[in-house]
Amino acid sequence: SPTVSLAELDHLVQIISKSHLETCQYLREELQQMSRQNFQQDEVESYQSKPREAMWQLCAVKITEAIQYVVEFAKRIDGFMDLCQNDQIVLLKAGSLEVVFVRMCRVFDSQSNSVYFDGKFAGPDVFKGLGCDDLISSVFDFAKSMCSLHLTEDELALFSAFVLLSADRSWLQEKLQVEKLQQKTQLALQHVLQKNQREHGVLSKLRCKVSALRSLCSRHTEKLSAFRAVYPDIVQTHFPPLYKELFG
């Protein structure tokens, strides 16, 4: 494990938190101002009555928007742009959606079990038209359990960076380099958790989240393949090119 001074850790925390805040899509102040308005029943029904392919396309667009912010986040993480291009792509292909799921807890309301989507707060029933009820309910459960950890923005930023810099992704060319970055990020996360006087259990709870994220993402890939098998042309012509690059 690398030797890192406390000053270096503090610096890393600062850089990663700043990167997170600059690229988090919605600022805290914006989130507070956002009316916590849930979709009305008629609005929910109008989402539910959309054709399956239209709902998939809408969600692909929203996911892609969120992912573009994650790419910007990655670029600002110390050391990420020093990795070879192959590894930058590998890490983003595997980790960008995971970070979107992590960030989802910022726009999730546990009390009403709803997430900010398309202008208002949406419960799982809004996504019924996708035909992936089990995946949607797992995503909501994940967001709820992330929320229950009450992470600060600093902690969330470092955990997102830790997820993105996973050194065990397949096809990495300079695995050791990524490993070093991830270890440093983990030390910075531990440092912040300690400084914030969080209980010891938080880190192990976050480790469990890593495997939950992998499962969510592989299930997303499975659902996309099933959808593509039925609607190949819709994916080909109507889905955002970046989404196709990442998940195609």
């Binding site: 573009q68 790419v71 910007e72 742009m81 930058q88 792509i89 090119p241 690059e245």
Partner: peptide, 16 residues
């Protein structure tokens, strides 16, 4: 590279 054209582009755009 062709396969990840947009990702490459996004990575190369300046972060300013």
């Amino acid at each position: 590279k062709e396969k990840h054209k947009i990702l490459h582009q996004l990575l190369q755009n300046s972060t300013s």
